[in-house]
C-alpha cells in the first residue's frame, strides 16, 4: 500500500499541529471548527498518517469524549428545546451545538497529532533538541512513549490471568468488580516499576547524561518544502485569527 505522502521535517509537522490546535482551542465557532477539522484531516492524510488506526487505538478515549458531549449538551441549555420533560427543556439546540463544538475541538487536536506519529521517536527527540529543548528531557519523553506498548502486553496478560483464575469480569456486580480491579493494579504497578528501572539502568550504563551536551548522529535539515510549510502555517493561522477577531468573520454565534 504505497500512497502519496509528503516527506517533511518533524519541526514543520510540529508547526502545523501547533497552528491547528491553537485555532481549535481559542476559536469556539462551529463554522471555523468544521473548517479546521476538514483541513487537519486533509493535512494528516497528506503527511501520510494512518487516521483509522489512530481512531482505533484511542477508542476508549472517544467513549469518554462522547459522554462529555452528552453531559455538555444536557447542562448548557439555551435556544430551542429539542427534548423536554414536563415542559423542562432537557436537550436544547444550544446544548447540542456546545457539545458538537467540544467534539470537533478534540478531533482537531487528535487528528493533527497523528501527523507527528509519521516520524519515528528518534526524529521527534532530535527535532525537540534542535529546537533547544534539553536533550535529557526530550529523551525521557521518548522513552516514556516507548514504555507504553511494553506495559500494554503485560497489562493484557494480567487481565487474562485474573479471568483464568475463574473470575468472569462481565458477570461480577460492579461493587465487587472494583475489588477485582484493585487486585489487577498490583502486578501492573510492580511490572511498571521493574521495567522502568531496567530501562534507566541500561541508559545510564551507556553514559546517558555524561555531559551537559551530546553529539547526535542523526542531523535534521530543513528543506525548501519545510520552510514553505512553516511559513504557510503561520500565515494561515494568523489569517484565521485576524478574520475572526478584527473582521468578525464568520459572523454571529447562534
Amino acid at each position: 500500500m504505497s500512497k502519496f505522502s509528503i516527506e517533511a521535517d518533524i519541526r514543520s509537522k510540529l508547526a502545523v499541529v501547533l497552528g491547528f490546535s491553537t485555532i481549535a482551542v481559542f476559536i469556539q465557532h462551529i463554522y471555523v471548527l468544521s473548517f479546521i477539522l476538514i483541513i487537519s484531516i486533509a493535512a494528516a492524510l497528506l503527511f501520510g498518517a494512518n487516521i483509522l488506526k489512530a481512531i482505533k487505538t484511542t477508542r476508549n478515549l472517544w467513549y469518554l469524549f462522547f459522554i462529555i458531549v452528552i453531559l455538555q449538551s444536557i447542562f448548557s441549555r439555551s435556544g430551542q428545546a429539542l427534548l423536554a420533560i414536563n415542559g423542562f427543556p432537557l436537550i436544547t439546540a444550544g446544548g447540542v451545538l456546545k457539545g458538537g463544538e467540544f467534539l470537533m475541538r478534540v478531533s482537531v487536536i487528535v487528528f493533527s497529532a497523528t501527523i507527528i506519529s509519521t516520524s519515528n521517536s528518534r526524529e521527534v527527540v532530535q527535532g525537540l533538541v534542535q529546537l533547544k529543548i534539553p536533550y535529557d528531557i526530550a529523551f525521557m519523553v521518548s522513552v516514556a512513549i516507548r514504555f507504553l506498548p511494553l506495559l500494554r502486553s503485560e497489562i493484557k496478560d494480567t487481565f487474562t490471568a485474573i479471568q483464568l483464575r475463574g473470575l468472569d469480569l462481565k458477570k461480577i456486580p460492579l461493587k465487587r468488580r472494583i475489588r477485582v480491579y484493585l487486585y489487577i493494579f498490583n502486578p501492573v504497578v510492580a511490572g511498571a516499576i521493574r521495567k522502568a528501572r531496567g530501562l534507566s539502568i541500561a541508559m545510564e550504563m551507556r553514559a546517558f547524561r555524561a555531559y551537559r551536551k551530546r553529539t547526535s548522529f542523526l542531523k535534521l535539515r530543513l528543506s525548501a518544502a519545510d520552510y514553505f510549510i512553516m511559513v504557510f502555517t503561520l500565515i494561515f493561522t494568523s489569517a484565521v485569527f485576524v478574520m475572526f477577531y478584527y473582521f468578525n468573520f464568520p459572523a454571529g454565534i447562534i
Partner: peptide
C-alpha cells in the same frame, strides 16, 4: 548486558540504538 532484551533497547531503529552510547560520549559523527 542484562537478561531481558526488552528493557535494554529503547530506540526506533537499530542504528539509533547503537549510536546512543557514542553520542553520549560526545564523539564526532
Amino acid at each position: 548486558i542484562f537478561q531481558d532484551p526488552d528493557t535494554q533497547l529503547f530506540s526506533p531503529t537499530v542504528e539509533d540504538e547503537i549510536a546512543f552510547g557514542p553520542e553520549n560520549l560526545c564523539l564526532d559523527r
